[in-house]
Every structure is written in structure tokens, then in C-alpha cells.
Amino acid sequence: MKPNRIMCMIPAGIAAGIFMFSSCHSGYSLASVEGNRIEVTAALDANPDSTAIAILTPYQKTVDSIMSPVIGQSARFMDRFRPESELSNLVADILRCSASAYIGRIADVGVTNMGGLRTALPEGDITYGNIYEITPFENTLCIVTMNGSLLRELFENIAAVHGEGLSGACLEISGDGKLLDATVAGKEIEDSKEYKVATLDYLAEGNDHMTAFAKVGDADKLLPEKATVRQLFLNYVSSSFFS
């Protein structure tokens, strides 16, 4: 019997999988797996689907009306890169300062990851769309209480990947990803002291190599409602612009 062929096509350079199943009385069994890359480029716009365009146009107009208003200004272009960058440190600053609304003071440290920032902040006008493009995920603020020993371990995690977005702390990292020194507010870390770290809920679970966070119990993780990183970023930009 000729095998059934199921093709899954995934755009944007992600491998497309072709799964072949052999049919028999007992059901299907995997016969082979093949894959290739499909480049999504402007060349695909040469023959647009008029039916699809007709369906999407009304929605596109609505989205554009929401995303295009200017909410702020940036004095310069800000990108994200390791070991640190203006954009990643800005977002870490926003997280750290936003914690004050929930714990009564600015957090000791702010931490974000480069992977959560998907593009750069342009120079000049900042729109809603710019902020959505930078922070497209539904990550929320999480305020973690951890002792100095675990905080140093967190900084070792950050050093191992050669840096992340950071606020309130200064790290010295070797070329091979070792933590040489770390200070918080210009002071040496005290092992038994409790520190407040403002970060993303995703990172607070120990993801993206920040395993020190996973050693903190849920009771020491505060998750404020309706405090997405995107909304905090929007609040910061718009309050600075309209104040």
C-alpha cells in the first residue's frame, strides 16, 4: 500500500517537516522524517493572494490605527546585545523601578534577558507598535526575594552566557564566562542578606539558564496582576512623553 504523506510547512526559515506513515491493519507507524528550509522573503509578494488581502485589509486598518499613535520620543537608536546594551538595561531599569508600586520601594536588582527583546528601539518617534515589536510576549513582572548567596549564583548564571539586561548591579565577567566580581548598589553582596530582584515570570521559573531562580520557593515570588513587561514599558514611555 502506498504510504500516506502529511506535509507541515512552517515559514520564517523554520524547518518544514514531511512525515511519512505506513498504513497497516494495526494503525500508522512512522516510516521516515524529512525536512528542508523555506525562506520567507519579499519574493513571495510578487503574486499576492487577492482573496486573502481582501479578508485581511479591514483588520490591518484597525491594527494600524491602534499601533501607529506616537507615545514617546527616543533621543537615539537603542539595540540589544551582550554583554550589556542600553535597551536591555533600560528594560531592567523599568522592571526594577516598577517594583516600587508593589513592595513600597525600588527593587535592589532588575534582570531581563536578551531573548525577550525581539528588536531595537528606533531613534525619534516611539509608537505603540514599536513597544509591541520589542516585547511581543506576555511576560509579567515577578519580584523575587532571594539571599545574597543565591543572588551571586544568579550572577554566575548571567556571566556564563556573557551578560543579560541588568539594573542596580555591576558584574565583572571573564572572557570565558566566569564571574570575577559582583556588587549591588556599589556594595559587596552579603550572603545572608535578603535582596529583591525584579524580573520576568518566565525567568523566575529558572528558564533561559537562570537556574538560581528555580531554587527560590513560590512564597518568595510576587506576581502582581496586570503587570506585563510590555505594559510597564508603555507606561514608562508615555509618562515620560506626556508629563
Rank of each mutant, 00 (worst) to 15 (best):
L117E: 09
L141P: 04
G124N: 09
K193T: 05
G129Y: 04
I173F: 00
G124P: 04
E156P: 03
A182M: 07
D125E: 14
F137D: 08
G163M: 11
A160R: 14
L117S: 08
C142P: 01
D191N: 04
F137R: 04
N130R: 01
I131M: 13
T135G: 00
E164N: 11
D181K: 09
A101S: 14
I143F: 08
L151Q: 06
E138R: 11
T112W: 03
E123N: 12
V144F: 01
I173L: 05
G104Y: 08
H162D: 12
E153G: 04
K196S: 14
T127R: 13
T127S: 15
A120L: 05
G104V: 10
K193N: 02
G165Y: 09
E194K: 12
T119L: 02
S149E: 15
I131D: 05
K187R: 15
R118S: 10
G148H: 04
Y132Q: 08
L154M: 12
E190Q: 10
M114H: 03
K178G: 07
N130D: 15
L166W: 09
I143A: 06
D125Q: 12
I126E: 01
T112N: 13
L179I: 06
I131C: 15
I103D: 01
L171P: 08
N130H: 14
T127Q: 05
H162V: 04
G115R: 14
K187W: 03
A182W: 00
G115V: 10
G168S: 11
N130V: 14
R118Y: 07
S100C: 13
E156D: 15
N113A: 11
